[in-house]
Computed example of a mutant assay.
Amino acid sequence: MTDATDLPLFLVADVGGTNTRCALARGAEVQAESIRRYRNDDFAGLPTVLKTYRDAMGATPDGACVAVAGPVADGVAELTNRDWSIDTVRLLAATGARAGAILNDLQAQGHALGHLAPDVCETVCTSAAPAREGAARLVIGVGTGFNAAPVHVTPTGRVVPPSEAGHANLPVRTEAELRLLTFVSTSHGFPSVEDVLSGRGLEQTYRWLASEAGASEERSAAEIMGSLDTDPRAEATVRQAVRMLGTVAGNLSLIHLPFGGVYMVGGVARALGPHLAGMGFADAFRDKGRFAGFMQNFAVHLVTDDHAALTGCAAHLNELAPTG
Protein backbone atom coordinates (compact mmCIF):
# COMPACT_ATOMS: atom_id res chain seq x y z
CA MET A 1 0.00 0.00 0.00
CA THR A 2 1.28 3.48 -0.90
CA ASP A 3 1.97 5.69 2.11
CA ALA A 4 0.24 9.07 1.89
CA THR A 5 3.56 10.85 2.23
CA ASP A 6 4.75 9.10 -0.94
CA LEU A 7 2.07 10.94 -2.93
CA PRO A 8 2.87 14.33 -4.46
CA LEU A 9 2.01 17.40 -2.38
CA PHE A 10 -0.21 19.94 -4.12
CA LEU A 11 -1.27 23.46 -3.24
CA VAL A 12 -4.78 24.13 -4.55
CA ALA A 13 -7.03 27.18 -4.45
CA ASP A 14 -10.63 28.07 -5.28
CA VAL A 15 -10.73 31.77 -6.21
CA GLY A 16 -14.04 33.59 -6.10
CA GLY A 17 -14.86 37.26 -6.36
CA THR A 18 -15.08 37.71 -2.58
CA ASN A 19 -12.96 34.97 -1.02
CA THR A 20 -10.14 32.60 -1.89
CA ARG A 21 -9.90 29.17 -0.29
CA CYS A 22 -6.55 27.42 -0.24
CA ALA A 23 -5.62 23.88 0.78
CA LEU A 24 -2.94 21.23 0.57
CA ALA A 25 -3.61 17.86 -1.02
CA ARG A 26 -1.79 14.55 -1.16
CA GLY A 27 -2.52 13.17 -4.58
CA ALA A 28 -6.22 13.67 -5.28
CA GLU A 29 -7.18 13.93 -1.60
CA VAL A 30 -7.53 17.36 -0.04
CA GLN A 31 -6.32 17.59 3.55
CA ALA A 32 -9.39 19.08 5.25
CA GLU A 33 -7.42 20.48 8.18
CA SER A 34 -5.30 22.56 5.80
CA ILE A 35 -8.17 24.56 4.28
CA ARG A 36 -7.95 28.29 4.87
CA ARG A 37 -10.22 31.10 3.67
CA TYR A 38 -8.91 34.58 2.79
CA ARG A 39 -10.87 37.76 2.12
CA ASN A 40 -9.80 39.08 -1.27
CA ASP A 41 -10.27 42.68 -0.14
CA ASP A 42 -7.29 42.19 2.18
CA PHE A 43 -4.87 41.45 -0.68
CA ALA A 44 -3.51 43.27 -3.72
CA GLY A 45 -3.74 40.21 -5.95
CA LEU A 46 -3.97 36.44 -6.08
CA PRO A 47 -0.19 35.78 -6.03
CA THR A 48 -0.04 37.54 -2.65
CA VAL A 49 -2.81 35.30 -1.29
CA LEU A 50 -1.03 32.15 -2.49
CA LYS A 51 2.33 33.22 -1.09
CA THR A 52 0.71 34.10 2.25
CA TYR A 53 -0.84 30.64 2.44
CA ARG A 54 2.34 28.86 1.39
CA ASP A 55 4.36 30.72 4.03
CA ALA A 56 1.76 30.02 6.72
CA MET A 57 1.77 26.29 5.96
CA GLY A 58 5.54 26.06 5.49
CA ALA A 59 4.91 23.99 2.38
CA THR A 60 6.92 23.45 -0.78
CA PRO A 61 4.40 21.84 -3.11
CA ASP A 62 5.22 19.64 -6.08
CA GLY A 63 2.36 21.20 -8.02
CA ALA A 64 -0.13 24.06 -7.74
CA CYS A 65 -3.54 24.56 -9.31
CA VAL A 66 -6.06 27.37 -8.99
CA ALA A 67 -9.73 27.36 -9.97
CA VAL A 68 -10.84 30.86 -10.95
CA ALA A 69 -14.34 32.30 -11.24
CA GLY A 70 -13.76 33.74 -14.70
CA PRO A 71 -12.59 32.88 -18.20
CA VAL A 72 -9.24 31.16 -18.82
CA ALA A 73 -7.47 31.57 -22.16
CA ASP A 74 -3.90 30.71 -23.17
CA GLY A 75 -2.93 29.95 -19.59
CA VAL A 76 -4.20 33.27 -18.22
CA ALA A 77 -7.23 33.61 -15.94
CA GLU A 78 -9.21 36.81 -15.46
CA LEU A 79 -11.68 37.05 -12.58
CA THR A 80 -15.12 38.17 -13.73
CA ASN A 81 -16.05 40.07 -10.57
CA ARG A 82 -12.63 41.39 -9.46
CA ASP A 83 -9.76 43.09 -11.26
CA TRP A 84 -7.36 40.16 -10.71
CA SER A 85 -5.53 37.90 -13.11
CA ILE A 86 -3.10 35.00 -12.82
CA ASP A 87 -0.86 33.12 -15.23
CA THR A 88 1.33 30.05 -14.82
CA VAL A 89 4.57 32.00 -14.34
CA ARG A 90 3.13 34.00 -11.44
CA LEU A 91 1.44 30.89 -10.02
CA LEU A 92 4.73 29.00 -9.85
CA ALA A 93 6.59 32.00 -8.42
CA ALA A 94 4.01 32.51 -5.66
CA THR A 95 3.78 28.85 -4.63
CA GLY A 96 7.28 27.54 -5.32
CA ALA A 97 5.76 24.61 -7.19
CA ARG A 98 7.51 22.90 -10.11
CA ALA A 99 4.31 22.41 -12.12
CA GLY A 100 1.10 24.39 -12.30
CA ALA A 101 -2.35 24.50 -13.82
CA ILE A 102 -5.05 27.15 -14.08
CA LEU A 103 -8.70 26.16 -14.43
CA ASN A 104 -12.05 27.86 -14.68
CA ASP A 105 -14.00 27.06 -11.50
CA LEU A 106 -16.51 24.91 -13.38
CA GLN A 107 -13.66 22.97 -14.98
CA ALA A 108 -12.40 22.20 -11.48
CA GLN A 109 -15.86 20.99 -10.47
CA GLY A 110 -15.83 18.68 -13.48
CA HIS A 111 -12.48 17.21 -12.49
CA ALA A 112 -13.88 16.57 -9.00
CA LEU A 113 -16.54 14.13 -10.24
CA GLY A 114 -15.66 10.60 -9.23
CA HIS A 115 -13.49 11.85 -6.36
CA LEU A 116 -16.30 13.06 -4.09
CA ALA A 117 -17.86 11.12 -1.23
CA PRO A 118 -21.21 9.53 -2.19
CA ASP A 119 -23.04 11.35 0.59
CA VAL A 120 -22.35 14.78 -0.95
CA CYS A 121 -24.30 14.01 -4.15
CA GLU A 122 -28.09 14.14 -3.70
CA THR A 123 -30.24 12.82 -6.54
CA VAL A 124 -32.79 15.34 -7.79
CA CYS A 125 -34.07 13.41 -10.84
CA THR A 126 -33.54 9.72 -11.44
CA SER A 127 -32.81 8.30 -14.88
CA ALA A 128 -34.54 5.46 -16.69
CA ALA A 129 -31.29 3.47 -16.79
CA PRO A 130 -28.00 3.41 -14.85
CA ALA A 131 -25.38 5.94 -15.90
CA ARG A 132 -23.36 4.67 -18.84
CA GLU A 133 -19.74 3.96 -18.03
CA GLY A 134 -17.46 6.55 -19.63
CA ALA A 135 -20.43 8.65 -20.76
CA ALA A 136 -20.30 12.41 -20.79
CA ARG A 137 -21.36 14.27 -17.65
CA LEU A 138 -22.42 17.87 -17.20
CA VAL A 139 -21.61 20.26 -14.36
CA ILE A 140 -23.88 23.28 -13.85
CA GLY A 141 -22.81 25.97 -11.42
CA VAL A 142 -25.29 28.40 -9.86
CA GLY A 143 -23.81 30.87 -7.39
CA THR A 144 -22.54 34.43 -7.73
CA GLY A 145 -22.78 33.72 -11.46
CA PHE A 146 -23.91 30.86 -13.71
CA ASN A 147 -21.90 28.51 -15.88
CA ALA A 148 -21.83 24.96 -17.17
CA ALA A 149 -19.17 22.58 -18.48
CA PRO A 150 -19.29 19.11 -20.05
CA VAL A 151 -16.99 16.41 -18.67
CA HIS A 152 -15.49 13.83 -21.04
CA VAL A 153 -13.27 10.88 -20.20
CA THR A 154 -10.84 10.06 -23.01
CA PRO A 155 -7.99 7.53 -23.40
CA THR A 156 -5.54 10.35 -22.69
CA GLY A 157 -7.33 11.72 -19.63
CA ARG A 158 -10.30 13.74 -18.54
CA VAL A 159 -11.29 16.75 -20.65
CA VAL A 160 -13.45 19.56 -19.24
CA PRO A 161 -13.76 22.29 -21.90
CA PRO A 162 -14.16 25.85 -20.62
CA SER A 163 -17.46 27.61 -21.14
CA GLU A 164 -19.30 30.85 -20.46
CA ALA A 165 -22.83 29.42 -20.64
CA GLY A 166 -24.22 31.98 -18.20
CA HIS A 167 -23.98 34.71 -20.81
CA ALA A 168 -26.24 32.98 -23.33
CA ASN A 169 -29.78 34.29 -23.85
CA LEU A 170 -32.52 33.45 -21.40
CA PRO A 171 -35.00 30.90 -22.74
CA VAL A 172 -38.67 31.88 -22.88
CA ARG A 173 -41.56 29.42 -22.46
CA THR A 174 -44.40 31.59 -21.11
CA GLU A 175 -45.82 35.10 -21.38
CA ALA A 176 -44.59 35.79 -17.85
CA GLU A 177 -41.05 34.74 -18.78
CA LEU A 178 -41.22 37.06 -21.79
CA ARG A 179 -42.07 39.93 -19.45
CA LEU A 180 -39.17 38.92 -17.19
CA LEU A 181 -36.84 38.88 -20.22
CA THR A 182 -38.02 42.37 -21.19
CA PHE A 183 -37.46 43.61 -17.63
CA VAL A 184 -33.92 42.20 -17.62
CA SER A 185 -33.22 43.71 -21.04
CA THR A 186 -34.29 47.12 -19.78
CA SER A 187 -31.91 46.85 -16.82
CA HIS A 188 -28.88 45.32 -18.56
CA GLY A 189 -29.42 45.65 -22.29
CA PHE A 190 -29.14 41.89 -22.79
CA PRO A 191 -31.18 39.14 -21.09
CA SER A 192 -28.58 36.55 -20.08
CA VAL A 193 -29.16 33.34 -18.14
CA GLU A 194 -26.95 34.67 -15.33
CA ASP A 195 -29.24 37.68 -14.92
CA VAL A 196 -31.90 35.32 -13.49
CA LEU A 197 -30.00 32.21 -12.36
CA SER A 198 -27.52 33.57 -9.80
CA GLY A 199 -27.57 35.35 -6.47
CA ARG A 200 -28.19 38.71 -8.09
CA GLY A 201 -30.64 36.97 -10.41
CA LEU A 202 -32.89 36.12 -7.46
CA GLU A 203 -32.76 39.78 -6.46
CA GLN A 204 -33.63 40.91 -9.97
CA THR A 205 -36.55 38.48 -10.25
CA TYR A 206 -37.89 39.78 -6.95
CA ARG A 207 -37.72 43.34 -8.30
CA TRP A 208 -39.52 42.23 -11.47
CA LEU A 209 -42.32 40.61 -9.48
CA ALA A 210 -42.61 43.76 -7.37
CA SER A 211 -42.84 45.88 -10.52
CA GLU A 212 -45.56 43.59 -11.84
CA ALA A 213 -47.55 44.49 -8.71
CA GLY A 214 -46.82 48.21 -9.09
CA ALA A 215 -44.31 48.23 -6.22
CA SER A 216 -40.57 48.89 -5.99
CA GLU A 217 -39.51 46.61 -3.14
CA GLU A 218 -36.07 45.01 -3.10
CA ARG A 219 -34.63 42.08 -1.14
CA SER A 220 -31.17 40.55 -0.97
CA ALA A 221 -30.78 36.94 -2.05
CA ALA A 222 -30.30 35.91 1.58
CA GLU A 223 -33.47 37.78 2.62
CA ILE A 224 -35.43 36.13 -0.18
CA MET A 225 -34.33 32.63 0.80
CA GLY A 226 -35.00 33.38 4.47
CA SER A 227 -38.56 34.66 4.03
CA LEU A 228 -40.19 31.97 1.87
CA ASP A 229 -42.76 31.16 4.56
CA THR A 230 -43.76 34.78 5.19
CA ASP A 231 -43.33 36.60 1.87
CA PRO A 232 -45.39 35.31 -1.07
CA ARG A 233 -43.23 37.32 -3.46
CA ALA A 234 -40.09 35.57 -2.19
CA GLU A 235 -41.80 32.22 -2.70
CA ALA A 236 -42.78 33.21 -6.24
CA THR A 237 -39.19 34.35 -6.89
CA VAL A 238 -37.75 30.99 -5.89
CA ARG A 239 -40.43 29.11 -7.82
CA GLN A 240 -39.52 31.10 -10.95
CA ALA A 241 -35.81 30.38 -10.40
CA VAL A 242 -36.40 26.65 -9.90
CA ARG A 243 -38.43 26.32 -13.09
CA MET A 244 -35.98 28.44 -15.10
CA LEU A 245 -33.12 26.30 -13.78
CA GLY A 246 -34.99 23.20 -14.91
CA THR A 247 -35.51 24.66 -18.39
CA VAL A 248 -31.89 25.75 -18.80
CA ALA A 249 -30.50 22.49 -17.40
CA GLY A 250 -32.72 20.58 -19.83
CA ASN A 251 -31.52 22.68 -22.76
CA LEU A 252 -27.87 22.11 -21.82
CA SER A 253 -28.53 18.38 -21.45
CA LEU A 254 -29.87 18.18 -25.00
CA ILE A 255 -26.74 19.97 -26.23
CA HIS A 256 -24.20 17.83 -24.33
CA LEU A 257 -26.11 14.50 -23.88
CA PRO A 258 -24.78 13.77 -20.36
CA PHE A 259 -25.75 10.11 -20.08
CA GLY A 260 -23.35 9.99 -17.13
CA GLY A 261 -25.47 12.48 -15.21
CA VAL A 262 -25.97 16.19 -14.56
CA TYR A 263 -24.34 17.66 -11.44
CA MET A 264 -25.46 21.02 -10.05
CA VAL A 265 -22.99 22.90 -7.83
CA GLY A 266 -22.69 26.31 -6.18
CA GLY A 267 -24.17 28.22 -3.26
CA VAL A 268 -27.43 29.21 -4.97
CA ALA A 269 -27.93 25.67 -6.29
CA ARG A 270 -27.53 24.34 -2.74
CA ALA A 271 -29.94 26.97 -1.39
CA LEU A 272 -32.53 26.00 -4.01
CA GLY A 273 -31.97 22.29 -3.34
CA PRO A 274 -34.74 21.75 -0.75
CA HIS A 275 -37.27 23.38 -3.11
CA LEU A 276 -36.43 21.63 -6.39
CA ALA A 277 -38.84 18.74 -5.94
CA GLY A 278 -41.81 20.81 -4.77
CA MET A 279 -41.48 23.72 -7.18
CA GLY A 280 -41.37 21.89 -10.49
CA PHE A 281 -37.71 21.44 -11.40
CA ALA A 282 -38.20 17.95 -12.89
CA ASP A 283 -41.24 19.00 -14.93
CA ALA A 284 -39.39 21.98 -16.39
CA PHE A 285 -36.27 19.89 -17.03
CA ARG A 286 -38.25 17.33 -19.05
CA ASP A 287 -40.63 19.75 -20.78
CA LYS A 288 -39.12 19.23 -24.25
CA GLY A 289 -42.13 18.32 -26.37
CA ARG A 290 -41.66 15.02 -28.19
CA PHE A 291 -38.28 14.63 -26.47
CA ALA A 292 -39.84 14.66 -23.00
CA GLY A 293 -39.43 10.90 -22.72
CA PHE A 294 -35.83 11.10 -23.94
CA MET A 295 -35.04 13.42 -21.02
CA GLN A 296 -35.58 10.44 -18.71
CA ASN A 297 -32.08 9.32 -19.76
CA PHE A 298 -30.45 12.04 -17.68
CA ALA A 299 -30.16 11.81 -13.92
CA VAL A 300 -29.69 15.11 -12.09
CA HIS A 301 -27.71 15.41 -8.86
CA LEU A 302 -26.99 18.23 -6.40
CA VAL A 303 -23.42 18.41 -5.07
CA THR A 304 -23.47 19.67 -1.47
CA ASP A 305 -19.67 19.69 -0.93
CA ASP A 306 -18.58 23.35 -0.83
CA HIS A 307 -14.94 22.30 -1.30
CA ALA A 308 -15.45 20.25 -4.47
CA ALA A 309 -13.44 22.69 -6.61
CA LEU A 310 -10.40 22.12 -4.39
CA THR A 311 -10.78 18.38 -4.89
CA GLY A 312 -11.04 18.94 -8.64
CA CYS A 313 -7.80 20.93 -8.69
CA ALA A 314 -6.00 18.16 -6.81
CA ALA A 315 -7.46 15.43 -9.03
CA HIS A 316 -6.41 17.33 -12.16
CA LEU A 317 -2.83 17.73 -10.95
CA ASN A 318 -2.72 14.10 -9.86
CA GLU A 319 -3.79 13.00 -13.35
CA LEU A 320 -1.14 15.18 -14.95
CA ALA A 321 1.57 13.78 -12.65
CA PRO A 322 0.55 10.18 -11.79
CA THR A 323 2.38 8.29 -9.10
CA GLY A 324 3.38 4.69 -8.98
Rank of each mutant, 00 (worst) to 15 (best):
E164W: 09
V160A: 09
A176I: 08
A165R: 07
T186R: 15
E218K: 03
L178S: 14
V172M: 10
P161W: 06
T186W: 00
L180H: 02
G201K: 09
L181H: 11
G189C: 12
L178G: 14
G201E: 10
A168K: 01
D195C: 08
E203P: 06
V160D: 07
E164R: 10
A210E: 15
L178W: 06
T186C: 00
R207S: 13
S185K: 07
A210F: 01
A213C: 10
L181E: 14
S192T: 10
L197G: 03
S216N: 11
E175K: 11
E203G: 01
G199S: 12
S192A: 12
D195P: 01
T186Y: 01
V159F: 12
E177P: 08
S192E: 11
N169S: 14
V160K: 11
H188I: 01
E218G: 04
E217Q: 10
V159R: 15
Y206D: 10
L178I: 06
G189Q: 13
V160I: 13
R158W: 08
R173E: 11
L181Q: 14
R179I: 00
S185L: 04
L180Y: 02
P162A: 12
A215T: 13
L202T: 09
Y206P: 10
P171S: 13
V193L: 13
P171Q: 10
E203T: 02
L181G: 03
L209Q: 02
V196H: 07
R200V: 05
S192K: 02
E212Q: 15
R158I: 14
P162S: 13
E175C: 04
R207L: 07
S185Y: 05
G166Q: 06
E175G: 10
E218V: 03
L181F: 04
R207Q: 14
G189V: 12
S163H: 07
S211L: 00
A210S: 15
S216D: 14
A176V: 07
T174I: 05
H188Y: 15
L181I: 04
S216Y: 02
V159H: 12
L209V: 00
L181R: 15
L202S: 14
T205A: 06
S216G: 01
G157A: 09
Y206R: 13
L178T: 11
L197K: 03
G214A: 03
R179E: 14
V172S: 03
E218A: 06
H167D: 09
V193R: 15
S216K: 08
E218S: 08
A176D: 14
G201Y: 12
A213M: 13
T186Q: 12
R179Y: 03
G199L: 11
A165T: 03
S187F: 03
V172T: 14
P162W: 05
A213W: 07
A176N: 08
L202A: 15
P191M: 04
E218C: 06
V184F: 00
A215R: 15
A168S: 10
S187I: 07
R158H: 08
E212R: 14
H188F: 15
T186F: 03
V196N: 05
R179H: 07
R173F: 12
E177C: 07
R173G: 03
R173N: 09
Q204I: 02
V196G: 02
S198F: 06
E217S: 08
A168V: 04
G214L: 04
S216M: 01
S187H: 13
P191V: 05
P191L: 06
E218D: 06
G166H: 01
P162F: 07
G214F: 04
L181P: 02
V184D: 05
V193I: 15
F183P: 01
L181Y: 11
A210R: 09
T205P: 01
G201V: 08
